[in-house]
Design a protein around this nucleic acid. Structure first.
Length: 853
DNA sequence: GCTCCTTTGAAGCGG
DNA sequence: CCGCTTCAAAGGAGC
């Protein structure tokens, strides 16, 4: 196996080796190492990955071949070596075949140094993913960045980590991703919202020069700079973290997102470039007839030929970029879904670094396995494409293995003697950190309860008397949820969900978070989770006993155990219906803030332990709130918000959302379709998890019932434009909002009525306090009616408002054609309603003027 | 600490 | 079926 004995630490000192083909084979564990390798000549690649050329489509799309071998026998199917070292056709095949080969568990008693093994295994997987691909040096660098980022933190002690990151990331941001001197000369200094000064082209002599014409305009550069800022912010967030642990997961998620963002930017840039090239070609063709000069014609012919070639090259690259984007999208999806299935959160507070790392790696590696994205030409040659669940199962299996390993492993400096207490594994901060507060926090009532439960559970199984046998590979504790729970520091883990997972893991209830159905599509069978009825009963008794003990104690225990035990007990076939309300916050799929909130809520209650009287009341109130699945736009917003925030100075979400709304409409159909598909999956998953849930469930709880009565007029008008444009863009406020500025917007009396132009209005028919959420999408006739004076509140809730709605209309071009909803014929109208004074109403009825077109 | 703002889309409800 | 309302996310701002 290639590099099987290579340690990442070694690689830091000798960063690169080459295989027979001269390809970079090893990994770079610091970004500065990567920077040294930078010899880019390809501006496109630089724009994509900061320092490398685009990977070829084939190299990144095709399934990874494992274990190149020079042996002749390896190619002979009849040979023993072939059998032993048979090259799996795909990475997933390899992963499925023998996970222990990569992530050995303690069952393999030959393990002497789990840390070394882990590092080796990681590097092996890495090799599996990329070594066999025909990548040039530059091509592989980009992905190496990702892996270096993933690998590095685990190898370094806490203090070294910080130093290393401090050293590596600035180098990374300056030299690799952005490296301003590497940016192509800028024709003109373009200001941007981040006030980044672009280089004027006269960089230092050591800077690398592009041989080719820069393919990207200033905007791309600006985006790259924004990207740099974003990275810097991430670094800052890393530094802010007390323990230097959380950045890992954060980066795992954000790195994928960053890849996607950059690819998206590149795609946009390429599309523009393609367009410009086409125009140039056309212009060239037009002038051809005018200029009869032979020499010029010959030159034009040459130029035209080259332009044609360039266009072809651009299209090819564009195709590659799109495929890469899909790949990363799939990776992200697999990763997040796998996290979700383990009950883990992508929040920064989660710190199952090893688990997340391997899951991210596996997700990336398997991103080609999906039938949906696998190119046709590859489908016929390779093994059967994996379904989403199959891919996730592979990831979970790997996570299971790595968790078993890391639990005992020395990756964090703990010794090999197994911990007696699963909550204080010496991992992370509890024993090594002197922060007493942490120790105090980790010893919550819930943890004690769970520990007791786990011990009780283990007592029921004689095979789990010894620490090692406790985590026998075939017993229930192999369940990744359980393992993850174990490997996570309980002071930072989200208590409710996390605890539920643990209890379920103890009980061997692999799918505790939702009602178990025979038709359940999610399969965890290959996790070898075993449940027997005796075990269940004994554990159920334990839980009952615990509940009895705990209940009178405190509200925190009430709140902590309420959910946990409800689900555990509810997992009984007889009581499965209790699971209907099993709490699972879908928001954990994409970021853990909600999970964190849950956790915080729980902890808050813990500070109020004396409040026994409110126990019953809180018990009733503790009904879980299952949120709606995100729709396509919401998914888009989540993904793009950070980018928009980085690009502009606007702070308020309302304004950001407006921009996002416009961008959403400006999005191509294909792009939108991607989010629609994602949203569809979300809904399906949500339906699977909560078959009995409906949005009415939430509504009936009366959590946030909106007031329907409208308000005293004017009260919130100021707020509207302020929300839209922000305080620093008051010149864009409408007249009612800003009497001094009075840039009254367009009052458009277009009577298209849905004919040639579609008008999307965001109008609160009764602006003011009450109808905050009552944003109504009105169609063109309504707007026309409003503007034309036939003013009637389109919303049923605005009866008391005596003043008319003024529609603030903005026309903007939508690059895509008609989509039948938001924009037709490329024109889109965004409108916001405002309360108008009588004068303004008169103005509103004046002949239309069009602005902002 | 709660609510509003703002966006789009999905779902539920009433007519 | 149509139209309206609510709620998903986000975070600054106002109360």
């Amino acid at each position: 196996m290639p590099n099987s004995s290579t340690d990442l630490k070694d690689r830091q000192s000798s960063p690169n080796t080459h295989d027979d083909d001269g390809q970079i084979k090893t990994q770079y564990s610091s970004f500065s190492d990567l920077c040294e390798l930078k010899q880019t000549k390809n501006a496109v690649g630089d724009a994509v990955f900061g320092f490398g050329a685009l990977p070829s489509t084939e190299s990144l799309i095709k399934p990874c071949r494992i274990y190149n071998s020079s042996s002749q026998d390896i190619n002979n199917p009849s040979s023993e070596e072939y059998t032993a070292k048979k090259i799996p056709s795909t990475l997933s095949e390899l992963l499925l075949r023998q996970p222990q080969q990569f992530w050995p568990t303690l069952q393999q008693e030959t393990i002497v140094c789990p840390e070394d093994e882990m590092l080796r295994n990681r590097s092996e997987l890495f090799s599996c993913i990329y070594n066999q691909q025909k990548c040039s040096d530059q091509q592989i660098l980009a992905t190496q960045l990702f892996y270096a980022r993933l690998f590095q933190p685990h190898q370094l002690p806490e203090t070294d980590k910080m130093d290393k990151m401090n050293k590596s990331f600035p180098g990374f941001t300056k030299k690799t991703i952005i490296r301003q001197e590497d940016l192509p000369p800028t024709p003109s200094s373009q200001d941007n919202n981040n006030n980044n000064e672009l280089p004027t082209g006269d960089g230092d002599e050591s800077s690398l020069r592009y041989e080719d014409q820069p393919l990207f305009d200033n905007r791309t550069e600006r985006n790259l700079l924004d990207h740099k800022v974003h990275i810097d912010q991430n670094v800052k967030s890393f530094k802010d973290n007390r323990y230097g642990e959380s950045y890992d997961l954060q980066y795992t998620c954000e790195f994928i997102k960053e890849h996607k963002n950059i690819l998206n930017e590149v795609k946009t840039g390429l599309e523009k470039l393609s367009l410009l090239s086409g125009k140039f070609q056309n212009n060239l063709g037009n002038t051809n007839g005018i200029d009869q000069n032979t020499a010029d014609s010959a030159l034009e012919a040459t130029v035209r030929r080259q332009l044609k070639d360039n266009c072809k090259a651009i299209d090819t690259i564009l195709d590659q970029v799109k495929r890469l984007y899909n790949k990363w999208t799939s990776s992200e999806l697999y990763y997040l879904r796998s996290l979700q299935r383990l009950g883990l959160s992508s929040s920064e507070e989660a710190s199952h670094t090893a688990t997340h790392t391997i899951m991210a790696l596996a997700a990336i590696a398997l991103s080609e396995e999906s039938e949906e994205i696998k190119p046709i030409d590859l489908k016929k040659n390779d093994s059967k494409p994996k379904t989403l669940n199959e891919i996730e199962d592979i990831i979970l299996k790997l996570a299971s293995a790595i968790n078993t390993h890391s639990f005992y492993g020395k990756s964090d400096g703990e010794d090999l003697t197994s911990p007696n207490c699963i909550w204080h594994t010496k991992k992370k901060n509890f024993s090594s950190n002197n922060n007493k507060e942490d120790v105090k926090n980790c010893t919550t009532a819930a943890e004690i309860i769970l520990e007791y439960a786990s011990l009780s559970s283990s007592e029921n199984d004689n095979t789990r008397n010894s620490p090692h046998s406790l985590f026998n590979n075939t017993n229930i504790t192999e369940h990744p949820a359980f393992l993850n729970a174990i490997s996570s520091p309980s002071s930072t883990a989200p208590l409710n969900c996390f605890s539920t997972e643990i209890i379920s893991g103890i009980l061997g209830l692999s799918q505790n978070r939702r009602k178990i159905k025979p038709t359940d599509a999610i399969k965890l069978n290959n996790l070898k989770t075993t449940i027997n009825s005796d075990q269940y009963l004994s554990n159920a008794k334990t839980i009952d006993k615990l509940s009895a003990i705990i209940k009178p104690k405190s509200s925190v225990r009430e709140s902590c155990t309420n959910n946990m035990f409800k689900h555990v007990v509810g997992s009984s076939p007889n009581e499965a219906e209790i699971l209907i309300d099993a709490p699972f916050d879908l928001s954990t799929k994409y970021h853990g803030t909600k999970l964190k909130n849950i956790n915080l809520d729980t902890k808050n209650t813990s500070s109020n332990q004396s409040n026994d009287s409110s126990k019953d009341i809180s018990n009733d109130k503790k009904k879980p709130h299952i949120k709606k699945p995100l729709n396509a736009f919401m998914l888009y917003m989540k993904e793009m918000r950070a980018k928009v925030v980085a690009e502009c100075t606007l702070k308020e979400s309302a304004a950001i959302n407006q921009i996002l709304g416009r961008r959403w409409h400006a999005l191509g159909r294909e792009e939108q379709a991607k989010y629609y598909e994602l949203a569809r999956r979300e809904r399906q998953l949500h339906m699977q998890m909560y078959p009995d849930w409906s949005s009415r469930t939430n509504a009936s709880r009366g959590k946030k019932r909106k007031r329907k009565q409208d308000t005293n007029e004017g009260g919130n008008n100021m707020k509207k434009c302020r929300a839209r444009f922000g305080l620093d863009q008051q010149n864009q406020w409408c007249k009612p909002c800003s009497p001094n500025l009075g840039t009254i917007s367009t009052v458009s009396n277009n009577n298209n009525g849905g004919g040639g132009m579609s008008i999307t209005t965001s109008s609160n028919s009764s602006p003011g306090a009450g109808v905050g959420v009552g944003v109504v999408n009105m169609l063109a006739p309504i707007v026309s009616g409003i503007v034309g004076g036939a003013i009637s509140s389109s919303s049923s809730s605005s009866s008391s408002s005596t003043s008319s709605s003024h529609t603030h209309v903005q026309l903007m071009m939508a690059p895509n054609g008609s989509n039948g909803n938001g924009s037709i014929n490329g024109i889109q109208v965004a409108a916001c309603s405002q309360q108008l004074s009588p004068q303004q109403q008169a103005q509103a009825q004046a002949p239309p003027t069009y602005v902002n077109l």
